[in-house]
Design a binder for these strands. Structure first.
Length: 477
RNA sequence: CGGGGUGUAGCGCAGUUGGUAGCGCGCUUGGUUCGGGACCAAGAGGCCGGGCGUUCAAGUCGCCUCACUCCGACCA
């Protein structure tokens, strides 16, 4: 083992924040641009996003959603139609005031989110109960002028998808809200190998203009929480502000009920901080741009490159995303490089292996190495990738559970927040004042009221009055 | 927006009491290597973030500015 490291990554135990930044840059996911908070997503990072997009989009389509594209500019007056919504977003909008050399009659907001555009459009196209529901989604970027920025976690422009749906009834819209939250949860589990907590946001944490906001919350390696996706139920608030009405079967004019839901490139930041280790990135197999990297050893010896190429072709034909690296670098360099870049499986093939009709296979997640017959690789590797996925999920879940604590009162809350980092479960009376008090006193914020309620006692952790809910708390990104 | 830190080669850094710039990695070329970040040789690469000042002389001293970054408050 060579001591010298060329592309050193800061240890996550030493400085988690630096570790994260190192990975983003050195695994070639992103580069900084000349505009603060606007990241360049490099080919390797973008390929991950494309895989997320492709699989999630299929899940949207399978549940009846259609993709559309809305303009990136919103007239300032349109954004102002829903009162809470403007107040929520006003502090962070970017404004266009000139077109060419001419000042604009009305400034245009660069979309921070597109509720208002969708609403305006829905009001044009919805007339009758026959027009409902409309289940729309768009993949785009939005702009929010954040003060502090970090790759994937918080940037001023970021890529996302935003679903916007209108329905005839409140029940149907509520169902949609939960359906999409479930899709996000399944996606995180089945593609990102990332366990999440589903729950409802408290009043003070709701989306600007929503009646109810639901979220999935994940716990990062350092015990800090990250909101990985949201789904909002708007009721008829936006439809009333934008006059989205339809005539029902009884010829009565009714307001629609609306939802919106979104996930962003933050999902990439999330799995980096859930699965990564001190050797770098660990990409969940199902969204990895390269699932298997084939590394020929002593590649200039007779037959090695041919064999490696043949293996690559067989694996590709078996449906795996595979890459052979025949560049002029030493094998050791390549091992380290692909480990840092988080490729789930490495396949080594050298003269010794060829003689025995085997290859060496190494798992990125555990470091385990095994020798496998070349006759079996096309069945062995797909199975191994599934095993890796399952193991990654299991480890992440165990770690999260180990970092989840229970507090019954302020003393216990203090003890936990003083010495530990993670989720804290408590009972809560439902009063926002208690929420604020805990935030100020202990530095943790409410994450969500989980769907999976547990009875941890009958008193609020803060005021001691009768409790209404079990609530998750934590520090957040 | 408040508090700290950093700006010198692509990256990471050094640069003494002021004297006009150096190291490692990377890069280029040639050769030997190749089972955990190989080695040898020869090269290329710098308005020292920007401005003003002090001085015979500024990477170095002073003032101003800009950018980035970390920690808070606000947010996906």
């Amino acid at each position: 083992m060579a001591e010298k490291t060329v592309k050193e990554i800061t240890s996550m135990d030493e400085d988690f924040t630096q570790w994260y930044t190192d990975i983003c840059l050195k695994a070639e996911l992103v580069d900084y641009s000349s505009v603060k908070g606007c990241m360049i997503i490099r080919p390797y990072g973008y390929a991950i996003w494309e895989n997320i997009q492709k699989n999630m989009d299929a899940m949207f389509k399978a549940t009846g959603h259609e993709n559309v594209y809305m303009p990136m500019f919103i007239p300032e007056s349109l954004l102002q139609k829903e009162k809470d919504h403007v107040e929520g977003f006003a502090p962070e909008v970017a404004l266009v005031t000139k077109g060419g050399q001419e000042p604009l009659a009305e400034p245009l907001v660069v979309r921070p989110t597109s509720e208002t555009l969708f609403c305006e459009h829905f009001s044009h196209i919805v007339q009758s109960w026959r027009d409902l529901p409309k289940l729309y989604n768009q993949w785009c970027s939005v702009v929010r002028w954040e003060k502090t920025t970090r790759p994937f976690l918080r940037s001023r422009e970021f890529l996302w998808q935003e679903g916007h749906t209108v329905h005839a009834t409140a029940e149907e819209a509520k169902e949609e809200t939960i359906r999409m939250l479930n899709i996000y949860t399944d996606f995180c589990k089945n593609y990102l190998a990332m366990p999440v907590i589903q729950g409802q946001k408290t009043e003070s944490d709701k989306f600007a203009g929503a009646e109810a906001t639901y979220a999935i919350e994940a716990l990062m390696h350092d015990g800090v929480a990250l909101q990985a996706g949201t789904s909002h139920y708007f009721g008829d608030g936006f439809p009333k502000a934008f006059n989205i009405q339809y005539t029902d079967k009884n010829n009565k004019l009714q307001y629609c009920y609306e939802t919106s839901w979104g996930v962003t490139t933050r999902l990439i930041g999330a799995f980096i901080m859930v699965h990564g280790d001190n050797n770098g990135l660990v990409i969940p197999p199902r969204i990895a741009p390269t699932q298997v990297v084939v590394i020929p050893v002593a590649m200039h010896k007779a037959g090695v490159l041919d064999k490696a190429g043949e293996i690559r072709d067989r694996l590709a034909a078996a449906g795996l995303r595979v890459k052979m690296d025949d560049s002029e670098q030493s094998p050791g360099w390549k091992f380290a490089e692909y480990e840092m870049k988080g490729v789930p499986v490495r396949l080594e093939i050298g003269p010794r292996d060829i003689e025995n009709n085997v290859c060496v296979i190494a798992r990125r997640d555990t470091g385990e190495k095994m020798t496998v017959s070349l006759d079996e690789i096309t069945s062995f590797l797909p199975q191994l990738l599934d095993t890796i996925h399952d193991d990654m999920y299991k480890r992440a879940e165990e770690r999260r559970d180990a970092m989840t604590y229970v507090a019954h009162n302020k003393e216990e809350l203090k003890e936990i927040t003083d010495s530990k980092q993670g989720f804290i479960k408590t009972m809560w009376c439902g009063d926002p004042e208690c929420e604020d008090a805990v935030r100020e006193e202990f530095g943790v914020r409410s994450r969500c009221i989980p769907f999976d309620q547990e009875n941890l006692g009958d008193k609020c952790v803060c005021c001691g009055k009768p409790a209404k809910y079990m609530l998750y708390w934590g520090k957040q990104y």
